[in-house]
Design a protein around this nucleic acid. Sequence first.
DNA 1: CCTACCGATCGGTAGG
DNA 2: CCTACCGATCGGTAGG
Lengths: 223, 223
Amino acid sequence: MRLRSAPLRGSKQKIFHAAIRLFRAKGFSATSMRDLAAACGMEASSIYNHYSSKEEVLQNILFERATEFFAQLDPILRMDLPAPMLLRMAVDRHVRVVTSDVDASMVFVQEWRHLTEPHLDHFISLRHQYRDYFIEILQKGIRTGLFRPINEKFAAVGLLSTLNALHEWYRPDGPLSISEIARQLSDQLLFGFMSTREDDLGPVMNTEEWNNSGNLESVNRNT
Amino acid sequence: MRLRSAPLRGSKQKIFHAAIRLFRAKGFSATSMRDLAAACGMEASSIYNHYSSKEEVLQNILFERATEFFAQLDPILRMDLPAPMLLRMAVDRHVRVVTSDVDASMVFVQEWRHLTEPHLDHFISLRHQYRDYFIEILQKGIRTGLFRPINEKFAAVGLLSTLNALHEWYRPDGPLSISEIARQLSDQLLFGFMSTREDDLGPVMNTEEWNNSGNLESVNRNT
DNA sequence: CCTACCGATCGGTAGG
DNA sequence: CCTACCGATCGGTAGG
């Protein structure tokens, strides 16, 4: 039984993983079915025994990742713990999913816009749903007074930006363990850079005011 | 004089801006020279009077943006101000460059990997140089005791991740002004989410420990 | 700036 | 899983 279905499932998995590598390296559009086939040691037409189109390969990669992110975050949300602890755990889970397949995570972040409808809409709604999980954590923190009264949507987007960039700089052979990365990311998000709460540097002068003071050339110049 | 050179420079600018819009919407690889020409109301071959290749169009977009980021950040670095203030100003400048052309900023962040050598190496070194500016600010903050003794490289990467994602969610007609966005981003980076310095929730339990305690299924399961 | 065109390559299908 | 092939389209050039 295992031997019988092995070749087919093996090939499909081979295509799946080769696609992740190629889509990451060259992008979805620049990767041809012939590139993908060559990476699997077969002809382009043979791929169509496993996937009906190039986009279907992308869909499989993207929604498999989405499923994994949700599977890991979901149990966290049901725990009745203080918001900072929830955030730490959610970040930890997210970091573990990303680092479990950096190539796939990069495709997840970068290539989803090549989906066509209705898959594109579906994907976007999943991303919003995931973001809403983090918004809930932030709201809970604000409600219980543990978090500052920040704009929780703004904060959630900033938070996810940081998490979603992990695939760009994570190296498995780097000096930090996955747990340490998650811990440091959480610390940075929870506490920021400042060593004290005050920022008593007088009124902040933004660029507009600074420009109006004549110190620098205009920002919105044309080249 | 203005009339004489106007048609040529006008066309080149037209191609330039159409390319920004198309590369943002479809990606560099999925945009054809015929797409680009059609958007400019000309034939594909006519583009080659202004640019020698598709990649050259991309190069122009990317390095123009890079120049703009540096032009805005450079004067900040020379100011002898406290690190938190430098950071606020640098973030403010960065936000202004991004919001001055959201499409071009998206191409800047997403499409640079389609450069070929030697342009790719050049671009990457410029990005590292830009990141090093922020590392310097962080180091200064740590040295003067205003910032916590964070890992400055780690922090700079997280910081830039947040800044580089701005193009994804910024809308010119949104409720926040550009100055307010810069201010809120700085606040988030400087102070984090917590309303107090302590995080007295007992020892943090990471996912590994939580799993070992038997509460949840394994994270690194295979699908 | 255009017409006309090049060889190469694209995603995908037919049929076995 | 392959051979053989489809029409469409690609980036780019010649020549005016």
